[in-house]
Simulated scan of single mutants.
Amino acid sequence: MKSFGSFRRKFAPWNDPAAKPYISFENIVKKFDDVTVIDDLSLNIFNREFFALLGASGSGKSTLMRMLAGFEEPTSGRIMLDGQDLRGIPPYKRPVNMMFQSYALFPHMTVEQNIAFGLKQDGMAKSEITDRVNDMLKLVKLEKFSKRKPHQLSGGQRQRVALARAVAKRPKVLLLDEPLGALDKKLREETQFELMDLQMNLGLTFLIVTHDQEEAMTMADRIAVLDKGQIMQVATPAEVYEAPSSKFVADFIGNINIIEGEVSHFANGEAEIESAANSVTIRTKTAKQLSKGQKVWYAIRPEKITLSREKPEDASINALQGELWDIAYFGDMNVFHVRLANGRTIKASSMNSVRRTDDPLGYDEQVWVSFEDDAGMVLVS
């Protein structure tokens, strides 16, 4: 089976104006009674893309997936898959398959029988079924467990059986609805990489629904961040994290500090922002066009911040003083909460790159928070 590992690293059809989308949601509206859950949403997904729909409960992500699967129909708009309009096509005739969080395995069937079930329903020849099931067992590394039943397997093994059954029919698109939610943290992290490898090896289009930011950031080529039935941003994980399009996206993805202020100077891609509430002047580089007096928000990730006892050389720019209020130790990193004079908190973090520190920062110390002029981003909405 051909690997698409090197292919994935160069994979960015969304940047090619000539590339045709594989899946298109076109002006989709979905209402349940008088409640609009999807509001005039349009989205393109490309062949062999690992795409994530990310949002909180009620954002519309699962409804969008269910419409693609055929379990719901749009109130208006259309969904195209590989050039075919899916309206009116029942779920069992759509070239998609779905893997649910519950796995939905048949308890009275063995692993190989579970994997073979859909193939038998399609009337595939017995010899072909045997070959396909063996291929799937090898793919998910469960050859030795083929005769076991689901209750004799671990959670991770059941998850792989469900995955093998879902891809055995070789759908054009595999839909994954919170597929790793039932796994413990360590196993979930391991399975994320297994899913990535599997998707690349199969060359299929994967669409995952999740509320787990880390899961989406780890696995997806691109992420659509949803809120109240609308798309807030579609971008690669790095772009969503480093260049969020709005305060909502910035605050939803990872940890971030957001400082409200007013532009006091802007020229040649450099701005100065005055934050009266925090008694700080922020000097930053930005590609946005700003005007003097404009209200903006400066967003900076905790890992971009430097903590020190010593006062920075130029404490009038990009520096705040406060009291070290909370410290959280996570093994690989430390997270610090610094309480400012106005009562607000700035979060900073640092990696534990050495085993021990001779003079670590402690609770209630007066510290300085500082950052470079290219460390954060300016948001206008």
Rank of each mutant, 00 (worst) to 15 (best):
Q366L: 13
F32H: 03
M80P: 04
I38F: 07
V367Q: 01
G155A: 10
F4G: 15
E73V: 11
K2V: 09
P360M: 10
S102Q: 12
N255K: 15
D227W: 07
Q294R: 10
V111K: 05
N134R: 05
D85P: 03
T218N: 09
P237Y: 04
N44Q: 15
R339F: 01
E274N: 15
D212F: 06
A220G: 11
Y329T: 10
S246R: 10
I115C: 07
I258H: 08
S146N: 08
R78D: 06
P107A: 11
L180Q: 01
S6W: 06
M200P: 00
K285V: 03
I258P: 01
S279G: 00
K147Q: 14
P91H: 03
G83K: 08
D364N: 13
K149H: 05
V354T: 10
S3R: 03
S57M: 13
K31Y: 06
V37I: 14
S6Q: 13
E72C: 11
G83M: 14
K172N: 09
I273P: 02
R148Q: 12
E310C: 04
G376C: 07
M351N: 13
S127M: 07
D314Q: 15
L195E: 03
A243Q: 10
S146W: 04
I231A: 14
S275T: 07
R222M: 05
D251L: 03
Q121A: 15
N47G: 10
E260H: 15
E189A: 13
L137M: 08
S59T: 09
A276E: 09
N255L: 14
M1K: 10
S370T: 15
S62I: 12
R160E: 00
T345M: 05
P107M: 12
V167T: 00
L202C: 01
G254A: 03
R87S: 00
T36D: 04
L187Y: 01
S102M: 04
S57E: 05
K292W: 09
I115P: 13
F330A: 14
G155C: 11
S353F: 12
D332M: 14
K304P: 01
F4R: 09
M1N: 04
K138R: 08
K295G: 02
P237Q: 02
N114G: 04
